[in-house]
Design a binder for these strands. Structure first.
Lengths: 194, 194
DNA sequence: TTTTATTGATTGACCCGTCAATTAAAAATA
DNA sequence: TATTTTTAATTGACGGGTCAATCAATAAAA
């Protein structure tokens, strides 16, 4: 029973956050969506904070699983880069409720040590996934900077999606990021900064 | 007295949000920072919601004023683009407390109709400011997409700054965006999508 | 004297987390 | 198998705390 309930509560948390658009959803609201009492949610997760952490860990694990699978199918460095980009805008990830949850966690992370740690893990993984492709295509310094830019671009497109403002669909979001990569690889300009 | 108090309360709101990292700061906390009682804050602003709106309007007005000034000094389309970018990462704008406030407002906007409207104004202004330079440099379609990308990039870099994760300083943030623009203008690749 | 500024105290709502009590399931025993 | 015993699942009710918003009362200006 326990695993079932935990899963149901985590799913309910995501959908509640997605609908509200922020983390201040009540335990009763979440529990209600999962079809149980709020007391039971506390029984399985203890404090609300732990439920939120578990939810974020779940999101992170799913993203990671998707990324691993996509990367294993990539045949070249260039494909690896595209795979990483595609994952973040896949139907599963680029959904309003998931995005709203991510965004809400970003904000909450400024208060919560543990959430901040989780987000850092995500950032590191994204960076290293990108580097695994970029490193073979351009110089190390260029790759580092490109990884930064792509990561920022993805975050930014997520925000805009959350606000339903501009680039609402995944296809054009991917196009924008791929465009950047094409520009990077297509014309190797000289760069002396850093 | 009223204008003084209103201004002090708005400043206090920004710094409180900046420190907490989210919008759930109490009226007492804000009022305390401004050196008055919470009752007085309600007296001047009514509901808490209105104080938050006023704060966001203030942020928006400041950003707009900076943008107008910078644009008026620009001598060419290319300079206009750089000016818009520079503004968003100026010492005044790219400060942790200001960024935290923006981010918090982004999240809150999903709940609040009025905040969403204000953010849309910001997005439109940024877009049109960027277009005022880009339109003269590349095709209309390219300019539109570039404006999207730059806007997303800026938002993304703001988030990363808020999390103190990667690209912590303004200079490298500007470099990343300028890099993108250089790539766009430097090598005009063919593009048939849309 | 009228208006404005200001606050302490209070109210009412909301919500987290706990606990005692109840029901259901599982294990052990006869 | 039938029974008792133990363990797990589940909830309603509630205490304690927080906070937005109000209000009556006081001080200061105009």
């Amino acid at each position: 029973m326990e695993p079932l309930r935990r899963r149901a509560l985590i799913d309910a948390t995501i959908s509640a956050i997605g609908e509200r658009g922020s983390l201040d959803v009540t335990m009763s609201e979440i529990a209600g969506r999962a079809g149980v009492s709020s007391a039971l949610a506390h029984h399985y997760f203890g404090a609300k904070d732990e439920l939120l952490q578990a939810t974020m860990r779940h999101l992170l694990a799913e993203l990671n699983a998707d990324a691993r699978q996509a990367l294993s199918a990539a045949r070249s460095p260039r494909e690896r880069v595209s795979a990483v980009i595609a994952i973040n805008f896949s139907d599963k990830q680029f959904r309003p409720e998931t995005i709203a949850a991510w965004l809400a966690f970003y904000v909450e992370a400024q208060k919560s040590q543990s959430l901040r740690r989780l987000l850092r893990i995500y950032a590191r993984r994204l960076h290293s996934n990108l580097m695994s492709g970029l490193a073979a295509l351009v110089t190390r310094a260029e790759a580092e900077r490109a990884a930064e830019a792509i990561a920022a671009l993805i975050d930014g497109l997520y925000i805009r999606r959350a606000l339903k403002d501009g680039t609402p669909n995944a296809a054009s979001a991917i196009a924008i990021v791929e465009d950047y990569v094409a520009g990077l690889l297509g014309g190797p300009r000289n760069r002396e900064s850093d």
